[in-house]
């Protein structure tokens, strides 16, 4: 008899990770960047118990990384596999809810409605207002949902060294990005995709800047900031505010520059332009 198990937003990633993992693996499981959240800790313990693998919170030590909503700050290598949990695998659903029609649009690379949606956002709001799950073009052919990672993490998928497997348990869909594949956020030739602007934010625990931060409301009405990637945070705490001493190379360097120069573009007059 099949046990009725409700999809709680983890099933897809869990199925993939349990398929790949064995005793010889060392896994890292994190949710919103944090290794110690209840959800991540439960999944990690479950996977370790079922497969006999060891666990880690260090990105560079893991063989398989299962994540919900984040990609680590430290660069992944070609021997590592990233598993992302996907709630909604269809990037066209916001413009075409009929799945069969959306499949036809993919078949003929008919992404006009998607471009129109972005254009309407520019006209109405002055900038793209897609938050997480920013749609990307893979291998210059298919529009894909990168799962609800923040825009900060989206460029990390472009020409990456590691294999990424994305799985939507509820919709029973699985897809993958091979290493060294073009993954480009949708943007116009004169209006560009932008990552979240955390350039002014300083981690109150480690003093690190130019990484993705959690914004924590304080009692006096202001906000405090902490590194979202807790594995990276623990390395930063070990080595003062210069995590470069203990951490591996990051996708965004200490000055906030992306490791592929020119991939992220800025409009004329943008203060963040290099």
């Amino acid at each position: 008899m099949k046990c009725p198990s409700p999809a709680v937003g983890e099933r897809g990633g869990l199925q993939v990770t349990l398929t790949l993992t064995g005793q010889e693996d060392r896994i890292k499981v994190f949710d919103q960047g944090a290794d110690e959240s209840v959800n991540a800790a439960n999944l990690r313990r479950f996977i370790a118990r079922m497969t006999g693998c060891s666990t880690t919170t260090d990105t560079t030590q893991a063989t398989i990384l299962q994540s919900r909503h984040r990609i680590p700050e430290e660069m992944l290598r070609d021997d590592q596999i990233l598993v992302l949990q996907v709630p909604d695998p269809e990037p066209l659903r916001s413009v075409e809810f009929d799945t069969s029609r959306a499949q036809e649009m993919h078949a003929f690379k008919d992404y006009g409605l998607m471009w129109l949606k972005l254009y309407e956002q520019l006209v109405r709001y002055g900038s793209f207002i897609q938050g997480a799950s920013y749609p990307v073009m893979v291998h210059k052919r298919y529009v894909m949902s990168p799962s609800p990672i923040p825009r900060w993490d989206t460029p990390k998928l472009n020409q990456s060294a590691h294999l990424t497997i994305l799985c939507a348990g509820r919709e029973k869909r699985i897809y993958a990005i091979p290493p060294w594949t073009d993954v480009e956020p949708l943007e116009f030739s004169d209006r560009f995709f932008h990552v979240e602007d955390h350039s002014e934010w300083v981690c109150r625990l480690s003093g690190v800047r130019h990484k993705f931060m959690n914004e924590i409301p304080l009692a006096d009405g202001t906000s405090g900031f902490e590194l979202s990637d807790t594995g990276y945070l623990s390395k930063a705490l070990k080595s003062g505010s210069d995590p470069a001493q203990s951490a591996g190379a990051c996708y965004f360097d200490a000055d906030g520059h992306f490791h592929q120069p020119g991939f992220l573009k800025f409009e004329e007059g943008d203060a963040r332009k290099e």
Partner: peptide
């Protein structure tokens, strides 16, 4: 489940607008 990263991303857009 926590959604503070995706919410953070949304708030970033609201502020920019």
């Amino acid at each position: 489940l926590p959604h503070y990263v995706t919410f953070n991303s949304t708030v970033d857009n609201l502020r920019r607008v």
